[in-house]
Every structure is written in structure tokens, then in C-alpha cells.
């Protein structure tokens, strides 16, 4: 069927303009609090945009509700600030209708894991080609400080004055468990690392889920200090690199081995273990990904950062197109008048 959209969808670009990050800054003041983790995320996203190989007019940012969801207003591309929790369902419909677009979702821990949890797991399982950046600040900030599904047990918030009772989600495990084909974690005060993750997400064909620890200076300040400050970060986190052994520590003196099916920290300086005994990170190993992600909340183990998992498989939007093309190829393009008439028709003469 010929539609008015065909020209836009099939437009061939011989050359994409040479953009600069500035080209992606919307002419509007950013209204997050000074010191909010959102700023560094925004600036890294704007930095990678010139190089993802997509013309500006083909990029769309969709969001739900929350501090993070203001994000589309700040990007000078197509933007859609929707309602609480629904960004992923909207983005799914958009991407399936318009596979030619580069679709991004900016969301938060409440928006994505609580009210939008159902859409998160299903968009993930379908492997719709969407890039999700989840700003995790472990709090509801726009509603002024209630605990979120990633808040920690015991955390005192406005709606948990005596401490949170709920166990939190581990976002990366939820993403892996629901079938995400790209799962990564970074944090707001490591711009170059974040930039790398966003570039990888942009390159990934399929559902990519990038969790960023984003400090909320107002309602949950310092929540991630242990993992982001240079005094503690080397021993509290481990940076994953594909094909490299799992080492960490101030002088890379610590490593992770498999003890049965459980990861365990060993000290390489003690001489009992060498680098050769350590787990080698393999982004494409789904079992390893689950084990690594599961280290997140284990106080004995460092928290993994970087690309936890990356799998290449057909995306949902591709499959929709293939199914249509396959049917058209086998049965010919449908004639609507035949469809209207159906199989059982008769003529009155």
C-alpha cells in the first residue's frame, strides 16, 4: 500500500550533516536542580549524538513522568513527554510504526520499574529496538521524596519514616530476566564511561537498557557515594570489559573467581591465585551476565559497572516488517476490495 509516509521512511541519505553536540541542545533552559545527576547524563547524550550516524530529524526521545522525564525538552530532536510509566509502550508503537527512526527513552526508577514495570519487561522481552536510559536515583524526586522500587531496605523517606520494608529491584537483573539484549550500568560522575555506554547502546540493534546512578542532591543526596567516590569506588565496584579478567582494587590487586557457581573475591597479591584463575568477562554469555548482575547487592562483592550483556538477535520491529514482506512475497500485495468482499459473497443482478 502506498502511504504518505513512504517518502519519509524510505528517504535515502547520501550524506548526514556534520553535527556538533550544540546542535542537539534545545533552545530552552534546563530546569534540574544545580548538582543533579541529570546534567552529566544530558551532556554525554548530546556528545554522542553527532556520531551515531542518524540524521537529527530521525531521532526521537520519549519519556514518562519524573525529573528524568523532562529530558526530551532539552534535546533538539523530536521529543515526546508522555504520562507516568508509559514511555516504553509509546516508544514500542512508534518504533514498530516507524522502524526508520532512532528511538530513545529517558526514564527513572519509579517511572520504569514501578508504574511502568509491565511495559519495561514486555518491551524488553520483545526486543524492540529502543535505547532506554534509566536514571536511577533510588527515590521519587518529582513528588518530593518517597521511596521507589530501587530504594534500599531501611531507607528513611517521606513515605517510610521508619524505614523501607520492601526489597528493591536489581534493575540489571530485571532487564536480563525479561530478555533485554543489551544491559549496562554507569554512574553520573564518570562522563567518559557513560559516553562509552551510550555509544554502545546506540550501536546496539535491539532493546538496550542502560542504568545510570544519578544523584538526587535534594532527596537522596549521596546515595551512590560508595560506588562513585574515588576513595571507595576502586574496591566497591568492578569495571567490566569484554574479554578481560575481572580485576579491581586500587592497584588491580583484587579479582573475582568462580567458587562453584558463586563468584568470590580473591587477593592476587597473596600469591594463591593469578590473573589466569579469574573470570574472563564475556558480554555474550547470558549465564555469566546473570551471575555478574547478581553480584550487585552482595556486600561481599564489588558492584559491576559497564556492559553486562550484549546479544545480537533480530528485533521485534524487524520481525514485523519481515513477516509483512514475507506474506506479500508469497501471496502478493493484498487488494482491499477482495478483502472487503471476503470468501463468501454473492451478487444481486
Amino acid at each position: 500500500m502506498i502511504t504518505q509516509l513512504d517518502g519519509l521512511i524510505n528517504k535515502e541519505y547520501t550524506e548526514i550533516p556534520q553535527y556538533t553536540p550544540k546542535d542537539f541542545k534545545a533552545p530552552i533552559d534546563v530546569r534540574w536542580c544545580a548538582g543533579c545527576g541529570g546534567y552529566s547524563i544530558l551532556s554525554q547524550v548530546q556528545r554522542i549524538m553527532p556520531d551515531i550516524g542518524v540524521p537529527k530529524e530521525k531521532i526521537v526521545f520519549v519519556s514518562g513522568i519524573g525529573c528524568s522525564s523532562r529530558f526530551p525538552y532539552y534535546m533538539d530532536v523530536y521529543g515526546f513527554h508522555s504520562i507516568h510509566g508509559r514511555a516504553l509502550a509509546i516508544a514500542s508503537g512508534l518504533k514498530v510504526a516507524r522502524p526508520d527512526l532512532s528511538v530513545w527513552v529517558a526514564t527513572g526508577d519509579g517511572d520504569c520499574m514501578s508504574i511502568g514495570g509491565n511495559h519495561m519487561i514486555h518491551a524488553s522481552r520483545r526486543n524492540v529496538d529502543i535505547n532506554v536510559i534509566m536514571f536511577n536515583n533510588e527515590i521519587y524526586s518529582l513528588t518530593k521524596g518517597q521511596f521507589s522500587p530501587t530504594s534500599r531496605v531501611g531507607q528513611k523517606t517521606k513515605s517510610s519514616p521508619f524505614g523501607v520494608l520492601d526489597d528493591p529491584f536489581n534493575p540489571s537483573s530485571l532487564a536480563l530476566g525479561s530478555g533485554s539484549t543489551f544491559v549496562a550500568r554507569g554512574y553520573d560522575n564518570n562522563p567518559s564511561h557513560m559516553k562509552h555506554l551510550f555509544q554502545r547502546a546506540a550501536q546496539h540493534k535491539g532493546f538496550s537498557f542502560v542504568e545510570i546512578y544519578a544523584n538526587c542532591v535534594i532527596f537522596n543526596d549521596g546515595a551512590f557515594d560508595e560506588y562513585t567516590r574515588k576513595e571507595t569506588r576502586p574496591t566497591s565496584t568492578i569495571n567490566l570489559e569484554h574479554g578481560k579478567p575481572l580485576v579491581f582494587g586500587f592497584k588491580n590487586e583484587l579479582g573475582i573467581i568462580m567458587d562453584g557457581y558463586k563468584p568470590k573475591v580473591v587477593n592476587l597479591d597473596e600469591g594463591k591465585y593469578s590473573v589466569n584463575d579469574l573470570i574472563i568477562h564475556n558480554e555474550e554469555d547470558s549465564t555469566l551476565a546473570l551471575i555478574l548482575s547478581d553480584m550487585s547487592f552482595n556486600p561481599e562483592l564489588p558492584r559491576p559497572m559497564g556492559v553486562i550483556y550484549a546479544e545480537s538477535k533480530p528485533t521485534y520491529d524487524q520481525k514485523v516488517t519481515w513477516q509483512i514482506n514475507d506474506l506479500i512475497e508469497r501471496k502478493g500485495e493484498g487488494n482491499l476490495e477482495d478483502l472487503m468482499r471476503g470468501d463468501e459473497w454473492w451478487e444481486i443482478k
Binding site: 519519509l8 528517504k11 530529524e57 526530551p72 530532536v77 521529543g79 515526546f80 513527554h81 504520562i83 516507524r98
Partner: peptide
């Protein structure tokens, strides 16, 4: 609609 050069704009529920 997205894909149209020069008409990049933001809309939403606000």
C-alpha cells in the same frame, strides 16, 4: 511527523 527535517519539536502531557 518525525523524519521531517527542520520540524523537530517537543510535545507532551503538560
Amino acid at each position: 511527523v518525525p523524519g521531517t527535517p527542520g520540524l523537530e519539536h517537543r510535545i507532551g502531557g503538560l
